[in-house]
């Protein structure tokens, strides 16, 4: 598996084409350099982010069944670049796979479009976040071989995003128990230094940004602050929604937690891209709210910690 070229049905999600365009761009760049062929599902719809399921569970399941069916039409497994998509879609997939009668009921709604979601065999059709794909299908050894600019001296704090680490039982942790330390493995493979801090697997607060702004930004601000205190040069995250609360809202979060922040937050493809030798500008790092200049300086100086 590790030596073949990987081709996936690619669901970029909503936000990577909306408020975090640098994610979409850097993913395209990195995929090319790694030799991963992306077949973009440009007719697919939003995963619902858990919010649609709150309103009507069947609706969320059907919307995601459509996306899965579109992917299955290409004959390829699916890849997403968002923890929230991963979590929301895995939840729907668990229900769809659990009961054939329910699945048939959902497929009724898709039949008019000539689509149908088929339950895969064990280990057959999958939907994986880029992070999981990188470790499980691409392989860390293969990744290491592609590194042109090791991230020596760069101290990176992982930020996973709730939807990709909980609840364990429906995110495949039985088969892949290390999924909640993949960011650490990737950081290490790319030559960076891992910074552990309290908030690595906690909530960025994005889901309540409109409902309780203070609670939301307190979470974001606290986790960014803890990472700074632990010595991080930047965070890395596989979730653009987390990115919104950690980066775009960082100045506001700083006000809520009453301290200066100013910590760069990188998307996972950006971190990978830097190690592959890409230019920060190419990776859209200039678009971030929290400046990434410090990261660029650390890399160009190549100073060991």
């Amino acid at each position: 598996m590790a030596s073949e070229n990987i081709k996936v049905a690619y669901w970029p999600g909503c936000v990577s084409r909306g408020f975090t365009p640098e994610l979409h761009g850097s993913m395209a760049l990195v995929a090319e350099r790694l030799g991963i062929e992306l077949v973009e599902l440009d007719r697919a719809n939003c995963c619902g982010a858990g919010v649609i399921a709150e309103h009507n569970q069947e609706l969320a399941d059907t919307l995601n069944a459509r996306t899965f069916a579109l992917a299955q039409q290409t004959g390829l497994s699916m890849m997403n670049i968002c923890s929230t998509c991963q979590g929301a879609q895995s939840e729907c997939q668990q229900r769809l796979d659990a009961d054939s009668a329910y699945r048939a009921h959902v497929n009724e709604a898709l039949s008019g479009q000539g689509l149908s979601y088929e339950k895969g065999e064990e280990g057959g059709w999958t939907n994986k976040n880029f992070l999981w794909l990188l470790v499980e299908d691409y392989g860390l050894d293969r990744l290491a071989a592609q590194v042109k600019r090791p991230l020596s001296g760069l101290r990176v704090g992982p930020f996973y995003g709730c939807y990709i680490v909980r609840p364990k039982e429906r995110l495949g942790y039985n088969h892949f128990p290390d999924r909640d330390i993949y960011l650490e493995k990737v950081i290490e493979t790319l030559g960076g230094q891992i910074v552990e801090y309290d908030g690595a697997r906690k909530c960025c607060g994005f889901p309540v940004i409109t409902m309780n702004r203070e609670t939301s930004l307190r979470q974001a601000g606290t986790h960014v602050g803890d990472a700074i205190d632990a010595g991080a040069d930047c965070l890395v995250t596989p979730c653009p929604l987390c990115h919104l609360n950690l980066d775009m809202q960082q100045p506001e979060a700083a006000k809520v937690v009453n301290r200066d922040l100013g910590l760069a937050v990188l998307h996972l493809p950006q971190l990978v891209g830097l190690a592959l030798g890409a230019d920060p500008k190419e990776l859209g790092m200039g678009k971030h709210i929290a400046s990434t200049r410090w990261v660029e300086e650390r890399l160009t100086s190549g100073v060991a910690a």
């Binding site: 719809n45 069947e58 609706l59 059907t62 919307l63 459509r66 659990a98 479009q113």
Partner: peptide, 15 residues
Amino acid sequence: VQAIYRHAETHNEEF
């Protein structure tokens, strides 16, 4: 997508 909405909002099954 709208067809899906029509179907799901009619049934609204909670599995």
